[in-house]
Design a protein around this nucleic acid. Sequence first.
DNA 1: TTTGTCTGCCC
DNA 2: ATTCTGC
DNA 3: GCAGAATGGGCAGACAAA
Length: 573
Amino acid sequence: MSKQKAVDNFERWAQLVQSIAETRGSNAKIELCANYLAQLSPSQLALACQYMGEGAFSNISGKRASIGSRTIGMAAADYCKIDYDIVFKACRTATGSSTETIQRLFENLTETRQKNILRHWDLAHISELAEKLAQTRARKDKQRILTRIWSGLSPLASKYFVRLLSQGSLRIGFESRSILQALAKIYEVDYEQLRYAHMLTGSIAKTAELVSTHSLDQAQFKLFNPIAFMLAAPIQSRSVKDWDTFIAEEKFDGMRCQLHAYGSKVELFSRDLNVVSNQFPELVDSFAIKDLPPVVLDGEICVFRESIIQPFQDLQKRMGVKKPTQALLSKYPVVFIGYDVLFLERESTVKQPLTQRRISIEKLSKTYKFPISSQHAVSSKKQVEQLFEQALAHGNEGLMLKQKNAPYSFGERKNHWLKVKQPSGSIDTVILYAQAGSGKRGGSYSDFTLGVSVKNDARYEEEFIPIGKAYGGYTDQEWKQLNKAIKGCIINRFGPTAQLHPEIVVELEFEAIQPNPRTKAKYTLRFPRFKAIRWDLSPSDVDSLEHVEMLFEEHQSKKRNPQKSSHSFLKPE
DNA sequence: TTTGTCTGCCC
DNA sequence: ATTCTGC
DNA sequence: GCAGAATGGGCAGACAAA
């Protein structure tokens, strides 16, 4: 009995998390969390925070459970002795959540209740169990271990154990920011100071440990430990009046990269702070021979061949390849284009204004001969438009506008950096299928398969064929209207998917049209989203596949300008 | 061995 | 990545 | 003004099935 009441019990943690999930308002959530955390010893506190904010594994551990929703769902169905496709999926469609489904099935089926013997594991043991899952390779073995774990946990704790297996948030409206606020409250420290420590350590667990032992000052920037990237918000062009407080750079369609270097040691990190050095050995080698002082650069990796920046799809062929062959390296040669410096010699430069950081990176670029972005002073909207066109002509996505006097706001998306893009286009499509969503969208149709017309197309027998899926760009009100309209045109159901009579016309916006031989249409859209529901149009107004092909050809025929008379980036010789 | 499915991680 | 919503 | 939630396409790699 006493064991059951122990504060370090995972069951107790799960109950706390559940009550946070059910509580409205972030201050009330923080209060609940703080009261709970205050009872824990430093090591338990660290784990409790880590589970709430980062999952079963600390962000800096690099570990993954590598178990996806399908494997888990199948295991749950097996454990409950129900059919995965018919019962589990239907239940998930109704609740909008796999883990919610797991909790309810486990609560309500006698079958599972009989197998269930509460083991009252403590927080540390949960880590060991997750570790075991991570170390197991085969999906079948993972499933076996998972069901054994479930048999020792309550249905509620089982739900949250599964959520711990995916990285990041528990989806209870309570993320690392709130956890830090709870910690700030308990230990009466400044929230900004905690956030800074969190950035430096890269881990909630470590930050909690430091604050609870009153040693926050031990959080120090360490070279080769990445820090969170500064992010950009889309521009609301009318809101910008004081153009001259910004500078402009072209927005590269590549891969964000943080480069740490000191002497012959070089490490590259992706946007999610994963190590990607192995994927780009030629970059590592080229920086290693420069013998740089201790430095951290922010920049972009792009494929660059014959003086032309190549499309993102080319880069994708390199991104996931951990041991690239020489042939691959020469087929898709890459550059690192620097545009910011976060650390130099002995000190962090993130608090300096951009102009000052720019002076540093220009000097570094000149001395050590590496490419940096071209920067332009701007003074008017018209000039921004000109630069925008030039960026597109170079094959880039658009522009970045950066406030000259802004610091490097690591891990935040503020209006200090604005991205200027322009949707590539839009087409009128018709809804062919609808699927229920998850979370707050559970139980209603929220994800739509959209089609273009092939009525007069000799290559196809159908009237419409799918061109893409979209789930956003509509408001909650439009979502309700859509669901009402859909009820009247369902002609078939395949599990959670409803096939609709083609009636509802949607103007679909996208960033690009990509050829894809694996789909029926042979083309797909990049970043498709609703632009408008066209209640005023009928299926006969829907654009044809030929129209899509024409748009693609039109775009394809535009040549990417080589980096000759004008430059997206500067490379000192 | 070959082909298909699932997963993670880029955008 | 994108978008909308809630705080 | 910002964080959070819910979702898109495409690629390589790991494992499963044929």
